[in-house]
Amino acid sequence: MKIRLQINGNTRELETTPTRTLLDVLRDAGYYGVKRGCEEGTCGSCVVLMDGEPHMACLIFAPAAVGKAITTIEDPDGDRPHAILRALADAGAVQCGYCIPGMALSAKALLDATPDPNEEEIRGAMEGHLCRCTGYVKQVEAIKRAAELMREEASHE
């Protein structure tokens, strides 16, 4: 069956079966930033945003995503690297990087809804994102810094 998905602001017509996951369909379409991890909703590496809300792409039948605005790490908010990605790099929060696309998107959903989160809120939003390299401290620091950067950018607009 063919489905039309809204991905990063573009409409894509993609081939699927009723039970292929959104993870499989997105990766087949070239969105390799959607990482294949546990495939059982535990690790968070396949998180994408659907209508601005984090969802595990491995837990969604692809046809269920029709009508939703899907955001992958390939293009969150335009041309230049997003403040969250810059902050993650600056903080040294990325080692192997496998968990980062999912974490960054969950962070984006958090900061879009809560521009000045406290540490508890940041750690809460990161629950379910497993990182085997860094121990999470740097990511929490990076998301705090990203919040500052996003507020500064908003004040200049």
């Binding site: 968070g44 998180v47 969802h55 969604i60 379910g128």
Partner: peptide, 9 residues
């Protein structure tokens, strides 16, 4: 109930 992301599902 599990994680925040799963609570969206």
């Amino acid at each position: 109930l599990y994680t925040p992301v799963l609570r969206n599902h």
